[in-house]
Design a protein around this nucleic acid. Structure first.
Length: 725
RNA sequence: GCGCCUUUAGCUCAGUGGCAGAGCGUUCCGUUCACAUCGGAAAGGCCGUAGGUUCGAUCCCUACAAGGCGCACCA
């Protein structure tokens, strides 16, 4: 008897929601339930993984779909092969990204962030975040992800706040977190500091100006930023540069663009004699490298630009002007004074803030940092991070990213973790005196007593630091903050280190490296044993699909609605190797929808065959066909074990369509009609096993087919043992 | 400047030391039924260029070219 449902074409929309609900109600997403219900042995090996928590900035896109697909394939495979499998879902508060988005929404209503109190603004952000979480949960479910919802976490919920504060305190106590004043990446648009990794360099055409500070200045310098030159306190030349030997140590004073400038000539190795005139104006307050030169020569520093990228220098023609205006004014002044010697076209890398797009202004600021070089018990954080990968305790796939990871560590400077935004984990530090009203910064005198801990200390006049933490500080704890750390929970003992981390290579530094940092220091464990990095999803033009580019032509929810999650998952799997970017087209997704239908039609055919339970004596030919299938199955299994998902998927696809359907069925139609039990058994067996093996890739249609073909007593596919093992 | 990746069918991409594959597209035939969300058949590729290793290279090595990426520099 062919089930009635099979007589109609396969309808993903009708099926998928219903199937997901069945899975959820079964409790099989939870490993403990699997043990209780006897589908997993209590002593089974552990497989644990965290979902990279999506940002609560709105909807999921194809990049998330790719990650979730890969992870769900692996998780379902591990569960079916008998491992005690845990997949933890959650969301990331994404501090700057979310705050920026809400600020934009408010601006549409004509409201500025600073018009609201901190408390009121945060209420707005939280309600936005809650709505995003709802959407994200819905989309994760639509994709079929078999995550354990009972363990859902949020990087900014109460439990994670305790983890963050404890982590901060331990690192503070170890001297790895410190507060210091130095040149930081200030984003005038976002009005916050950002870390080195959040700076995006953009090649731009610019001009290189060569000039003298004054008529009697013996040395000409070159710069692309003349406006900063009012903040110069030195001119640096290479120690071996014969041209300038006689000036080293001399001091010169000028009236430069209406401001007094005094420069001392110093000799420093950092100067490239070939570049420009071979002499550099040193601006310690507005350049990282200049600050380093200044430190070596004990030069004074003069701040001439403020947080709004406006000139603060005491010059009637410059004060209050924006930096670009000031540049023009100074160039005109140089021309008028006859000081400009050369004006050349050049290409410069403009530093911009990743989230706001604002042009970074290097400024000296008092901020919180994670010291990556300080040794604690003989090893620095850099050392810990390096060792974790170098020792192969963490394996990175594809391997080439190891080099990139090491390269990043080698160039790593202290990680600036404080942000001048409101949404996020407030820095768990309290000061005895109130900070001055017009600045979030405390001067050394104002600082008073300082306390770092999980809660506000007892006594009067304790005020918490105004700043919040870099969002990656809390996501860095994700593999263990989700398991209950700092408490020594059963979950933590059972599931940490996690087995695998699957994420995009674009957040290797932001997230993967920071998780390794946090876990190796705080737990003395690697956070995961294997890192699988996927590529970026690109649109038809090859551009990265992102909200900020506005090229989300292929919207996730529409694609699922149109073609079903199974088809989308297959299109994101076949032909997509680890680490390489993938272009997605609607045609490809449609192609795999056809495959789902093909499978459905085979099911219809197979269900019409007589179902004899006992294995009959197989004809030689049938035995050979069965053997060939099992060989392919074991190859696909090996591919899955080695995380070559795209190969496993393609093999199964190709076999089912072009061997099972095109050959095995076609060649046996005559015998099947004649009631040949050997042919029927062979076909049915191969089909049931191939549907089972396809389940991790296309969970919905396979589960539905299985439910129509299986005996009452048989389990759902999600917990059916992997065939052939 | 240091390093990495890519180059395979018209398009987008897999893949392998020994007859070159998928999705979409193209051409022709087919609605005697599991399946028109289809089936059958076909066209289409000196696997970027030049060397080398090898019995044999699209695959390994070297150089080059084109495109892309990361990091550093960025006066």
């Amino acid at each position: 008897m062919i089930p009635e449902k099979l007589l109609k074409p396969y309808n993903p929309t009708e099926t998928e929601g219903r199937i997901y609900k069945l899975w959820e109600e079964s409790g099989f997403f939870n490993p403990e339930t699997c043990v209780e219900k006897g589908v997993t042995k209590g002593s089974a090996p552990i497989f644990s993984i965290v979902l990279p928590p999506p940002n609560v900035t709105g909807n999921l896109h194809l990049g998330h779909a790719l990650a979730i697909t890969i992870e769900d394939i692996i998780v379902r495979f591990e569960r079916m092969r008998g491992r005690r499998t845990l997949w933890i879902p959650g969301e990331d508060h994404a501090a700057i990204a979310t705050e920026t988005r809400v600020k934009k929404n408010l601006e549409k209503e004509g409201v500025r962030r600073r018009d609201l109190t901190r408390e009121d603004f945060l209420k707005r952000v939280e309600s936005f975040a809650e709505a995003s979480k709802e959407t994200i949960r819905k989309q994760i479910k639509e994709l079929g992800a078999s995550v354990d919802w009972s363990r859902e976490a949020f990087t900014l919920d109460r439990e994670r706040e305790l983890s963050v504060r404890e982590a901060f305190r331990r690192m503070y106590d170890a001297g790895l977190i410190y507060r210091g004043s130095r040149i930081v990446n200030w984003d005038p648009k976002g009005q916050t500091v950002v870390s080195d990794d959040e700076v995006v360099y953009k090649e731009t055409k610019g001009k290189l100006y060569t000039f003298r500070y004054g008529r009697d200045c013996p040395i000409a310098i070159s710069t692309t930023r003349p406006e900063t030159k009012v903040g110069d306190t030195a001119v640096a030349v290479h120690p071996a540069d014969k041209r300038y030997q006689k000036y080293i140590g001399q001091e010169y004073s000028f009236e430069f663009a209406g401001a007094p400038v005094t420069v001392k000539v110093v000799a420093d190795q950092a100067v490239e004699p070939q570049f420009g005139t071979g002499a550099v104006g040193v601006t310690p307050a507005h350049s990282q490298t200049d600050a380093e030169i200044a430190a070596r020569h004990h030069l004074s520093s003069k701040t001439v630009i403020d947080e709004f990228a406006r000139m603060t220098v005491a010059s009637f023609m410059l004060k209050g002007k924006k930096v670009l205006e000031a540049r023009e004014i100074i160039v005109n002044w140089l021309k008028k004074e006859g000081l400009l010697e050369k004006e050349e076209e050049t290409v410069q890398n403009i530093a911009t803030a990743e989230r706001s797009g604002g042009v970074i202004e290097p400024l000296p600021k008092l901020q919180w940092f994670v010291d990556v070089n300080k040794k604690v018990e003989g090893v620095s954080l850099k050392g810990l991070m390096r060792e974790a990968a170098a020792s192969r305790r963490i394996k990175i796939i594809p391997e080439r990213f190891e080099k990139i990871y090491f390269n990043w560590i080698d160039n790593l400077r202290d990680w600036c973790i404080s942000r001048q935004i409101w949404y996020g984990h407030r820095i768990p530090v309290w000061y005895k005196k109130r900070p001055s009203a017009d600045s979030y910064q405390l001067t050394a005198e104002e600082k008073g007593d300082i306390y770092c801990g999980a809660e506000k200390p007892e006594g009067e006049n304790w005020v918490q630091d105004e700043d919040t933490l870099d969002t990656w500080f809390s996501s860095g704890l994700w593999t263990f903050s989700t398991l209950g750390w700092p408490d020594e929970t059963m979950d933590l003992k059972t599931y940490h280190p996690t087995s695998l981390l699957e994420t995009g290579y674009d957040i290797l530094f932001f997230w993967v490296a920071r998780m390794i940092l946090m876990s190796t220091f705080l737990l003395g464990q690697v956070p995961f044993r294997t890192v699988y990095l996927h590529g970026l999803i690109r649109d038809k033009e090859g551009r990265k699909v992102s909200k900020s580019l506005g090229n989300e032509s292929l919207r996730l929810e529409e694609l699922i609605k149109k073609y079903g999650a199974d088809a989308l998952r297959m299109s994101l799997t076949v032909g997509v190797g680890a680490g390489s970017d993938a272009r997605v087209s609607e045609e490809k997704i449609r192609g795999y929808k056809h495959f789902g239908n093909k499978l459905w039609n085979i099911a219809r055919f197979v269900s019409g065959l007589e179902n004899k339970k006992d294995e009959p004596t197989l004809s030689l030919e049938d035995a050979e066909v069965l053997k060939k299938w099992r060989e392919l199955l074991s190859e696909a299994t090996a591919d899955l074990e080695a995380l070559r998902l795209h190969l496993a998927a393609e093999k199964l696809y190709h076999y089912i369509w072009h061997v099972l359907a095109d050959k095995i069925i076609e060649e046996r139609k005559g015998r099947l009609e004649a009631g040949d039990v050997s042919a029927a058994f062979t076909l049915r067996t191969i089909f049931r096993e191939s549907v089972t093996a396809l389940h991790p890739f296309m969970p919905f249609v396979t589960e539905e087919i299985n439910s129509l073909l299986k005996e009452e007593s048989e389990k759902p596919l999600i917990v059916t043992p992997w065939p052939g093992i």
